[in-house]
Simulated assay, not measured.
Amino acid sequence: MLNKRTQTANLKKQNLITYTRSNSIISDQFRTIRTNIKFLTEEKENKTFLMTSPGSGEGKTTLIANLAVSMAQQKEKVLLIDANLRNPNIHNVFKTSNEIGLTDVLTGKISIEEATYIPGIGKLKVLTSGSTLVNPAELLGNELMIDLLKKETSAYDMVLIDSPTVLDFTETRILANMCDGVVLILQRGKTGMEKAIEAQRVLDLAHAEIVGVIVNK
């Protein structure tokens, strides 16, 4: 069946600096992050990375969206998943609908091929969060999510997952345990040291592998 979400969006009004200003200093910083992740995982099969932060407003969604674009610009096949079912924002960044997405795939309403959005940037595909559910932790913690990640990991060079804040929501810890690596996002001047240390402790308890920390300005 033809993917009905295939289109080239008008992204210029969003925070996708790596798309609108690919030669800027900021875009170069994202290329550095991309390269560092590849160096960290070059001898492993790591392909699935979760990005989270101790609290809200740390710039996590903007960062992961730009990183996904940066990777796709290097001809990598990338899947960006919005697993922040409580406060989704990836669809706003890419100016697309959120009527269908991850939740609809996990509940069997639609296939992932039908739910995936193609913004027209390299080989990037985006799976938005989808319709809101009452219990995100229960949905994201079931075997269907594990199976979805296993299947998509084999189909892509990289799978990036945007998640809720790690100190506030259980599902982030569950997802972190499913992924090959976790990148913790902190914001300079906002994220307190105590919260950063607590986030690391929580992720360690979840047996998550923290592969790096990004301090967002």
Results as ranks from 00 to 15, higher is better:
L2D: 12
T8I: 14
N10Q: 12
L11Y: 05
Q14Y: 11
Q14P: 00
N15Y: 08
L16G: 06
L16P: 00
L16H: 03
T20R: 11
T20P: 02
S24Y: 07
I26Q: 14
R31P: 01
T32Q: 11
I33Q: 06
N36I: 07
F39T: 07
T41Y: 05
T41M: 03
E45S: 14
N46V: 01
F49P: 04
L50A: 09
S53R: 02
S53P: 03
P54G: 01
G55E: 12
G55F: 05
G55S: 14
S56C: 05
S56A: 13
K60I: 03
L67F: 11
A68E: 02
A68W: 04
K75A: 13
K75P: 01
L80N: 11
L80R: 11
D82P: 05
A83Y: 09
N84E: 07
N84D: 15
N87K: 15
H91C: 01
N92K: 15
N92A: 07
F94L: 04
T96H: 04
S97T: 14
E99A: 09
I100L: 06
G101I: 03
T103Y: 10
V105A: 01
T107C: 11
G108P: 10
I110P: 05
I112R: 10
E114L: 07
Y117E: 04
Y117Q: 04
I118Q: 12
I118M: 04
I121V: 14
I121A: 09
G122M: 03
G122Y: 04
L124I: 04
K125R: 13
K125L: 00
T132Y: 07
N135C: 06
N135P: 06
A137N: 13
A137P: 08
A137E: 08
L139Y: 08
E143C: 01
E143T: 15
L144H: 13
M145G: 02
D147R: 15
L148M: 13
K151T: 14
E152Y: 01
E152C: 06
T153I: 00
T153G: 12
T153N: 15
S154L: 12
Y156A: 07
M158N: 12
V159A: 02
V159I: 09
I161T: 03
T165P: 08
V166C: 07
F169Y: 14
R173M: 09
N177S: 14
D180R: 12
G181V: 05
V182C: 07
L186R: 06
G189E: 10
G189Q: 11
G192P: 00
E194C: 02
E198Y: 06
Q200A: 04
R201I: 03
R201H: 12
D204A: 14
A206V: 08
H207M: 10
A208M: 10
A208I: 11
E209T: 15
I210F: 00
V211E: 02
G212L: 08
G212R: 11
V213Y: 05
V213I: 15
V215K: 05
V215W: 02
N216E: 09
N216Y: 12
N216F: 13
K217Q: 11
K217L: 07
